[in-house]
Design a protein around this nucleic acid. Structure first.
Length: 256
DNA sequence: ATGGCCGGGAAGCCCGGA
């Protein structure tokens, strides 16, 4: 059977609830990985997801961060500890789904290049790589990586070069994932051309299509062999009260 | 005509996002 799995930074699951539910009813993915819940476990709207048949695995936090995996089949072996790194920030949830290890992350934004949080961001990629290599294959990492991997993944690469989310040290980290066998799945299916998953709320960025591709699917070789497609769904970015991100989806063949 | 936003929690602004 084939699973359809999505990743989406929803920018508050409570503010976005009607948009997310509408999208689930339209797209009917088997799994949705969400980032930036901006909600605690207690605040998470379980009922609305369960009404559509989804199980919810939630790593919540007050005000900021927060990630969740909602899935039609019950997830196994849920983990929220990223090898002890940044324990006070809820940025990772990892589950077993139909024999796949699915890791859902919200990588720190980094604030500014000269901010101490930028160092945490760079370190985050390394710790995540070590964590992801600790599982039996196949393994897929999805989420908001907060970096555009290459010049086709952002609207103005020349002007943005060296700034947060398009800094050479950040891009190098994505190249290191590739060196460790985790490929950028979207670019396998769309090797050429500008493609974005995020558009700033300001400056009419969406209408002018000035965006960045920050939301990635990285798959190891075993997972890549089973993946059949990967694409960005721009539709919900056009709806009322949208998130500034839009969903990225992929399809993967699993035995049962 | 080229850009002026959004969410949460505490408070009537500030922080964070990217």
């Amino acid at each position: 059977m084939e699973l359809k799995i999505a990743t989406w930074n929803v920018n508050s699951v409570r503010a976005r609830l009607s948009v997310v539910i509408r999208w689930l009813e339209k797209e009917k993915p088997d799994v949705l990985c969400m980032q930036e819940l901006k909600a605690t476990l207690e605040q998470f709207p379980f009922e609305e997801f369960e009404n559509l048949g989804y199980h919810c695995a939630v790593n919540g936090q007050v005000r900021w961060n927060g990630v969740a995996v909602v899935s039609l089949s019950e997830p196994a072996a849920i983990e929220t500890d990223l090898n002890g790194f940044l324990p006070e920030q809820s940025r990772m949830i990892s589950t077993g789904i139909h024999g796949i290890r699915l890791i859902n992350v919200y990588v720190p934004n980094g604030s500014e290049v000269d901010d101490p949080r930028f160092k945490d961001k760079l370190r985050y990629y390394e710790v995540l790589r070590n964590y992801a290599e600790g599982f039996d294959r196949p393994t897929v990492i999805v989420g908001d990586f907060n970096v555009a991997p290459g010049p086709d993944d952002t609207h103005s690469p020349e002007q943005q070069d060296g700034t947060v989310c398009y800094h050479p040290l950040e891009r190098k980290q994505i190249q290191l994932f590739e060196k460790h066998g985790f490929r950028d799945v979207f670019r396998k299916y769309h090797p050429q051309g500008k493609a974005y998953s995020w558009w700033d709320y300001r400056a009419a960025s969406f209408r002018r299509n000035r965006g960045m591709r920050l939301d990635l699917v990285l798959a190891d070789e075993t997972a890549m062999e089973r993946i059949t497609d990967c694409f960005i769904d721009k539709e919900p970015r056009k709806w009322e009260k949208p998130s500034d991100h839009t969903p990225v989806l992929f399809k993967i063949e699993v035995s049962e």
